[in-house]
C-alpha cells in the first residue's frame, strides 16, 4: 500500500504542476478558472490519499467544505466573466 500511496502522490504532484502551468499561462480568465478548478480537485484528491495513507480522518470535514467552496468560487467568477468580459 505504501508504494501505491507514493505513486499516487507523485502522480498528483505532476498533475498539479500541469494545472499550475496553465494557470500561469492563461491566456483568458476562463482558462484560469478551469485550471484552478482542476487544481483544486487535484489538491482535494491529494488530501484524500493522505487520509487513506495515515488512516487519520481529521481533515475530512475540511475537505467537504473546501470542495463546496471551490464550486461557489468557480460559479462566482464565471458570472463575473459573463458580465464583464474575459479580458
Amino acid at each position: 500500500m505504501t508504494v501505491v500511496v507514493w505513486i499516487c502522490l507523485v502522480g498528483l504532484t505532476i498533475a498539479a504542476g500541469l494545472c499550475l502551468v496553465r494557470l500561469v499561462r492563461g491566456p483568458s480568465v476562463p482558462d484560469r478558472i478551469v485550471a484552478l478548478d482542476a487544481l483544486l480537485l487535484v489538491v482535494v484528491a491529494g488530501i484524500a490519499v493522505g487520509a487513506a495513507a495515515t488512516g487519520d480522518g481529521d481533515f475530512l470535514a475540511v475537505l467537504v467544505a473546501v470542495s463546496l467552496l471551490g464550486f461557489v468560487g468557480t460559479v462566482t467568477v464565471a458570472r463575473f466573466v459573463e458580465r464583464r468580459g474575459a479580458a
Binding site: 502522480g11 498533475a15 500541469l18 502551468v21 485550471a35
Partner: peptide, 9 residues
C-alpha cells in the same frame, strides 16, 4: 488527474 493536467496543457 494526470490526464486532466495533460489535456489542460
Amino acid at each position: 488527474a494526470l490526464l486532466a493536467g495533460l489535456g489542460l496543457l
